[in-house]
Amino acid sequence: MSRPLIGVTTSRRSGWRIFPLVALNVWLAGGRATRWVAGRDADIDRVDGIIIGGGDDISPDLYGGRLVTSARLDPDRDALERRLVCAAFEHDKPVLGICRGSQMLNVALGGTLHQDAYGVYTASKRVWTILPRKTVKICAETRLAGVSGLKPMQINALHSQAVDTLGAGLQVAARDLGGMVQAVERIADPFALGVQWHPEHLFYARRQRAIFRALVTAARARHEHRGQIEDVRREVEMVTE
């Protein structure tokens, strides 16, 4: 097939800045991207996979939490992205969640969030930068470990919320040195991975590009009616041979 088409959700306010960077990463991975924002058409049938991008906090109304005064919310985007995640799973299409998107992946599957994650994980290093200045440990025997390896990873961080209870069918794929969840993934097809950091800013790093390549590989597998996780595993083996 030609390059798989990936729908990418962004903020209406600032998405014009970040979408070109996400689209570049998707292109380098062998796909092509189209931008979605709340209030415009976002048809799951048109795409082979989706990326739920970063941005504002997710409203606690979606998971029964309590609103903190520092939260910055976008209810229209919340509704769009929750619908898209559920529709993607219903149509067996792969999902990559980036920062807020990782949290939305968890919430859409019935999980909850820590709104003040650093208030809970006081031993976690609090950084606010697009530079890779935070260390995470990849969990063994996970999809993320297969894609990016088990070696501790240097990442960036632009978040205040984090996963609390896991959504249905998810497992933890990475934690920071203070124990805070930094990545989650779906156990079975369709392929789904959520990372708390912003790999699109780290496109110069092979392990970060591999995250986008895994999504595009899964999208191609779905289009060609093959197992998504199996195809991702097979490609990783080919790259590392």
Rank of each mutant, 00 (worst) to 15 (best):
P4M: 06
V8C: 06
T10I: 01
R12V: 10
G15H: 04
G15P: 03
F19A: 04
L24M: 14
N25M: 05
G30D: 02
G39L: 09
D41N: 14
A42R: 05
D43M: 00
D45T: 13
R46W: 08
D48M: 03
I52L: 05
G54S: 09
G55I: 06
A71W: 05
A71I: 01
D78R: 01
C86N: 13
A87E: 15
A87M: 10
P94K: 02
G101S: 10
G101W: 00
M104I: 03
N106V: 03
A108R: 04
A108Q: 01
G110N: 14
T112V: 04
D116C: 05
A117N: 08
Y118D: 01
Y121Q: 08
Y121E: 06
T129E: 00
L131P: 03
P132M: 12
R133C: 11
T135P: 09
V136K: 15
C139G: 03
C139M: 14
R143A: 11
L144A: 13
V147F: 08
G149L: 10
L150Y: 01
K151A: 14
Q154C: 06
A157G: 11
V163S: 05
G167N: 05
L170S: 08
V172N: 03
V172E: 13
R175H: 12
V181N: 02
R186F: 05
H198A: 12
E200A: 04
L202G: 08
L202M: 13
R209I: 03
R209F: 09
A214D: 15
A214G: 15
T217A: 04
T217N: 00
A221S: 04
H225V: 07
R226K: 14
R226S: 12
E230K: 14
V239I: 11
